[in-house]
Design a protein around this nucleic acid. Sequence first.
DNA 1: CGAGCCGTTGAGGGGATTCAAGCTCAGTGG
DNA 2: CCACTGAGCTTGAATCCCCTCAACGGCTCG
Lengths: 241, 241
Amino acid sequence: MRTIPLYRQDSRHPQAQACAACRERGMALFGVLDETALDDIHVHIADVELPTGSVLFDIGERGHALYTVRTGMVRLERVTARGDRRVVRLAGRGDLIGQEALLQRSHLDAAVACTPVRACRIPRTLLDDLSDRHPELMRGLMTRWQEAVESSEQWLAELATGPARRRVLHLLLELARHADDGVLWMPRRAEMGAMLDLTIETTSRIVSSLRREGVISDVDAQHARLDVPRLQAALREQDQG
Amino acid sequence: MRTIPLYRQDSRHPQAQACAACRERGMALFGVLDETALDDIHVHIADVELPTGSVLFDIGERGHALYTVRTGMVRLERVTARGDRRVVRLAGRGDLIGQEALLQRSHLDAAVACTPVRACRIPRTLLDDLSDRHPELMRGLMTRWQEAVESSEQWLAELATGPARRRVLHLLLELARHADDGVLWMPRRAEMGAMLDLTIETTSRIVSSLRREGVISDVDAQHARLDVPRLQAALREQDQG
DNA sequence: CGAGCCGTTGAGGGGATTCAAGCTCAGTGG
DNA sequence: CCACTGAGCTTGAATCCCCTCAACGGCTCG
């Protein structure tokens, strides 16, 4: 296991430790940079803490920063031509959001904290500079972009397709991917509705029935434990029967 | 209006003319390159013609090339966990597809020609080389990637949301964006179904009724003319009433 | 001419929405 | 202490939309 150099451990910038921790997990965008380059950038990156409901950026804003999510969940949502909210993607630990800021474009969707969130705010100008001096960064950026495409298409294929029960089951799978200790975050029914294009009532009925079937069990109002084998079984029977 | 230099007009590489034409329209990925650089790349790029139904790349393939669509429509589709086809995006003139090849990743969705297609096949290795020597290309690449994200999220928000009629109307709008002369390509009912997650019968019923209402009128089996104002009106009434 | 594909239309059933009522729970103030 | 309130969740009943099953017509092609 790599250890953090001493001079970095008690650095004047607490951000240095945050960046180093990310690097350890191999999830940092700046993982490819060498240590001296890393030391330069901490000052520009802010580790922000956001309570549930905070807006990282809003629709139409000309973005000045990108964010890497460190903990918690962020939803990316937009307003349809019809006028209702539609969640198009979820971002969790390690995900990069707001890339469009790099292109000086305005955001087409809003990023809202679904849970308390810690994120690293990376100014656009920093990345502009870095990408000149460190072209090896580009590959990481492209990878993040591709991951956004894949995540969005995955969402379309599994969470926006088929009967309501199937969509809820797949949402639970998706939420489980982001759960660290077996306990997953349960969105409110209205939020699940915005994610799956269902009404509050339908969502509630399905969640209740899954609870009765033992697929999920409540931990508290916002968290539940998931019985993955049962969920898989439910999905199989759903997809064939 | 810019004219193509003589030496390029009767170049040994017919591709030179194709590339120049794209550049004229400002849609070329390589638009930022200067002319000598352009001359170098023609040899590597192939202008391919594909009949309806051709597969540009398939799910799971390790991609070796990217494609810019010059004419026609390409659908990007994948197979859901449930086992059915789901179209997640359409690509038309000027769109770049298959970027994941750059990252040496395998394709997560298949690209299939919906109509006769002309496309430029750009080998991965060419772009690898170019991005070293011409870092200004990166911005264009990132823009294309962002466009893929936006297109996929747009698809999710408008074509996968709400009642069937609304979804069909929005699909027609999307198809109209790619129509050059007021005549748009009408997919088969089964394809529209795969795009909107509807059955053939439901799709057929809605299309028929739109025809009766005068929103669309057939040109031939595969093409129709669209009355945009009526479509807009139909959408308004759909979304409010 | 029959076979097969595609689109259309009908009838019936099922699943999601709508409308409505009741529930729990936290916060508030009498 | 407890009624009051409002927000969020649940459940029921009726309606409507979409799917399923089925039949039929137009068209191409062997």
